[in-house]
Design a protein around this nucleic acid. Structure first.
Lengths: 164, 164
DNA sequence: TAAATGGTTTGTCTTACGCAAATGACTTGT
DNA sequence: ACAAGTCATTTGCGTAAGACAAACCATTTA
C-alpha cells in the first residue's frame, strides 16, 4: 500500500469523530447504566467477555488496553456482583481465567435493552441499516486485536499495542 | 417505529464497541498528537470548528457536550497557540464568536497527517473503503446535533442533549 | 534453589470532566 | 434609569478513570 499513489489514501480521518460520537453515546449511556449498577467500562468488559469468551486477566487487560492493576479493580467490581467469575487456570495456577456468568449475561442483556433507547436518540440520524453497518464495522475493527486475546484462556502471543 | 415489530429492532448495540474502539484510537492518537502540543479534546474541537464553522461558545459547548467553564479552559489552550480566535459578536457583545485560524487549520492538517499512521494501524482490519464508510457514518451521526450549533454564530435554538 | 511470572494491594499522580459560586461586561425588560 | 437577565471567566471542589511504581504472595520455570 505504501507504493500506491496518494489518491488511494483515505481522505478522511475517523479519530476525531470517533471520539466525538463515542463521548455522546457514553454520556447518555451512563444515565441508563447507573440504575443497573454499571458504568461504561463495565459494559465494555462484559461485552468483550461475551463476544470473545473467557480470557486470562493478562490477555483481557491487553484487549481492553488498560493496566493490569486497574483491571483487577474493574474485575473486583464485576465479581462482587457475580457478573463474572475468576477460576484458577488448570494449566498454570498463577493465572485466572475470567468468565462471564449467567447473571452477568443477563445483566448485559438488560443493559443493552436500556441502551437501545439511548442509541435511538443519539444515533437518530442513522437508519437502522446504517446502525447495523456501523456495528459491523466496529465489530470488525475491534476484532483484529482478537489475536492478542486468543480464543479461550490458552497461551497467547505477546499482546499488541496497549490501548487506553 | 414504536409500532414496528421486534424484528425491525437493530439486533446489535454500538455503545460498547464504540467506546472500545474509540479508546484504542484515542490512546494511539495521544502519542502522535503530543509532539504537536495537542490532546484528543483539542483535536475534536478543531475538527468541529473546521467542519461546522465559527460558533458561539455556548453553542460550541453544547455541540461538544462539555460544560461551558471547561470549554473556556479548552479554548484558552487553543487560543494561546493561535489555533483559534475569539471575537466579540457584533450582534451581542457578551458573546464570543470562535473561529479556526489559518494556523489552526494547518495544525489540524498536520495532526491528521500524523493520525493517518495511527488509523492505518488501529483500523488495520478495515479496508480503505470500509474506513471511508465508517467516517461517513460517524460524520452523519454527529451531524445531527448540528441543529444545536446552527451555521455561523447566529441565534441558535436551545441546545439538545448535553454530551460528555 | 533462584529467578521469573500472574495477580493483588496500595499509593501517587495526571487528566478530564461536572458543578457551584462569584465576577465583570453587556443586553433586555420595566 | 435601574433591575434583572445573559455570556464568558475565574476559582474551587469533588469524582472517575486511568498510568505507573513498589511490595507481596503463590506458582512456575530455569
Amino acid at each position: 500500500m505504501a507504493s500506491l499513489p496518494v489518491l488511494n489514501q483515505p481522505p478522511h480521518l475517523c479519530a476525531a469523530l470517533l471520539d466525538h460520537l463515542s463521548r455522546r453515546v457514553r454520556t447518555r449511556s451512563e444515565t441508563v447504566l447507573a440504575p443497573l449498577g454499571l458504568r461504561p467500562r463495565h459494559l465494555v468488559t462484559l461485552t468483550v467477555l461475551r463476544d470473545h469468551g473467557s480470557s486470562t486477566q493478562q490477555a483481557l487487560a491487553a484487549r481492553l488496553g488498560i493496566d493490569s492493576t486497574n483491571l483487577v479493580g474493574l474485575l473486583n467490581d464485576l465479581e462482587a456482583d457475580n457478573l463474572i467469575e475468576r477460576r484458577r487456570s488448570p494449566e498454570d495456577r498463577r493465572r485466572h481465567v475470567v468468565d462471564l456468568t449467567d447473571v452477568g449475561a443477563k445483566k448485559l442483556a438488560k443493559a443493552e435493552f436500556a441502551l437501545a433507547a439511548v442509541e435511538d436518540e443519539v444515533l437518530a440520524a442513522l437508519t437502522l441499516e446504517q446502525r447495523e453497518q456501523l456495528y459491523s464495522l466496529l465489530q470488525q475493527a475491534t476484532a483484529t486485536t482478537d489475536i492478542a486475546a486468543c480464543a479461550g484462556a490458552e497461551d497467547e502471543p505477546a499482546p499488541p499495542v496497549m490501548y487506553r
